[in-house]
């Protein structure tokens, strides 16, 4: 991905548009792999007996987070209630709290309208292209260029997501059920799982999450998945805090996790 570093001071006229376009170009390499995931989400929406096509497609601009949308549709199919779905979305999207914390310093001087709009577009790939890990926390660009690059990188992601999901819904009728194309969905989550697991507490979190979810697959309102995820996070977080199997020192944690996020978004879709 390319990175435009501008000199400090007031930007010259017209340069903001160029920075915006360089953001668009940088995001294209992340938007292309996101397209098939959007199509898969469209398939899942089409296959769902509970979620209508319009409601499912609308989740792409309402929630705008692939993994959470997949989980929400899965839970609704299982007959889950509103609370269980919203709780699952909260859990799966909780990493956005970290993205938000990581970017808040860099855009501190941005106007409120940008923070209102920018928060909406703070998905994995936009974080990957605009986070502090890109330039080791140092950013000499004028704030208007930071904003232009951010919004430019958000544009292809949002477009591909809305079009990809609609295509999946539309194409679903041409895919024979015997192909079991929906098997690609657990494969995608498997990929996200492996990309997001880098140390022993991560493996423990995954094993606990998987085991409890299998044992509790018939529990009401998708609570097996939730219980597994919460238990996994609590146990892994405790291990991490006491230094069991994780790299030591909070100072080393931040760049390490930022690097993983970048790798994750670069190699995959992971709208998640």
């Amino acid at each position: 991905m390319e990175r435009t570093v501008e000199m400090p001071g007031r930007p010259e006229a017209g340069s903001t548009a160029r920075v915006f376009l360089s953001g668009v170009r940088a995001a294209l390499s992340l938007a292309v792999p996101a397209l098939p995931i959007g199509v898969l989400l469209g398939f899942a929406i089409r296959e769902s007996a509970v979620v209508s096509n319009l409601a499912g497609w609308s989740s792409s601009w309402l929630v705008f987070a692939g993994a959470a949308q997949f989980a929400a549709i899965e839970l609704l199919d299982q007959g889950a209630g509103v609370f269980a779905v919203v709780a699952a979305v909260f859990m799966i999207n909780a990493r956005h709290l970290m993205y938000s914390a990581a970017l808040s310093g860099r855009y501190r001087s941005a106007p409120t309208w940008f923070k209102v709009v920018g928060s909406y577009f703070l998905i994995d790939q936009v974080f990957a292209l605009n986070g502090d890990h890109i330039s080791s926390g140092r950013d000499d660009r004028h704030i208007s260029h930071r904003m232009a690059y951010y919004l430019g990188s958000a544009l292809p992601m949002a477009s591909v997501w809305l079009v990809g999901v609609a295509s999946g819904i539309g194409l679903g009728q041409f895919i024979p059920a015997s192909w079991e194309i929906e098997f690609a969905i657990p494969l995608m989550f498997l990929g996200l799982l492996i990309l997001s697991t880098s140390n022993l507490p991560g493996v423990v979190a995954a094993v606990i999450g998987a085991s409890v979810a299998v044992v509790g697959r018939d529990w009401p309102s998708g609570s097996g998945l939730l219980t597994g995820a919460v238990l996994g996070v609590v146990v892994a977080g405790t291990m991490d805090w006491y230094g069991v199997g994780s790299s030591p020192g909070p100072d080393e944690q931040q760049p390490a996790s930022a690097g993983e996020d970048g790798r994750q978004a670069e190699n995959s879709e992971c709208q998640s």
Partner: peptide, 29 residues
């Protein structure tokens, strides 16, 4: 402690989504 624990949301949640679909079966088919 919370910031560090949140890093494990992804593996725990994704594994909890994958495992029942592989070991039990899909609700979709």
């Amino acid at each position: 402690p919370i910031r560090r624990a949140l890093r494990y949301v992804a593996p725990a949640a994704f594994a909890a989504i994958v495992a029942p679909r592989v070991l039990d079966g899909f609700s979709l088919s």
